[in-house]
Amino acid sequence: MDTQERDSETEWIRRSQRGDKEAFGFLVKKYMRQAYCAAVGFLGAHDEALDASQEAFVRAFLSIGRFDATKKFYTWYYRILRNHCLNVVRNKRIRTISFSQIFDESFEVISSDPSSEEILERRELRKAVWEGLWKLEVDDREILVARDILGTPYATLAELLECPIGTVMSRLYHARRRLRENLEGKV
């Protein structure tokens, strides 16, 4: 985030703190895609993820008065979203995982003539990975989705997860190992 962008974000936050919903709308529009993807990682379902990310924005607006405008909005919002998603998981015990609703099932052409068998195999492998991710503890899934699917940098992960980069690396390593166990030799 460059200085100008940071300044305008700080301004939106200050205006939101004065109850300006339009200014808060700028923040929502800026982060809604990220928020949705993070929620999918927790909840594994499209509708629930949309709903949870919107609900977390509402909660953020209602308590934005307590937020320090000099800090990063998304880091703060992410904690609200995380807690809300964990509550949803706890209360609703979501079990459904809708692969085709969430993931792009198109394939990059890896050979000049990919056979239908090859396409099918890759599709099955991706499904297996998502199922393997879903079987993990939510903390493991969270870090793997953020790093390996969304490509979140280590420094940002450290901020979001409120831990040092060394801990991020260690958590990531162990999460990958547990995912490998869940894949039972498919990779």
Partner: peptide, 11 residues
Amino acid sequence: VKEVTMELKFK
């Protein structure tokens, strides 16, 4: 494991 995980792309 990372490579196959990276293949997952959100719609």
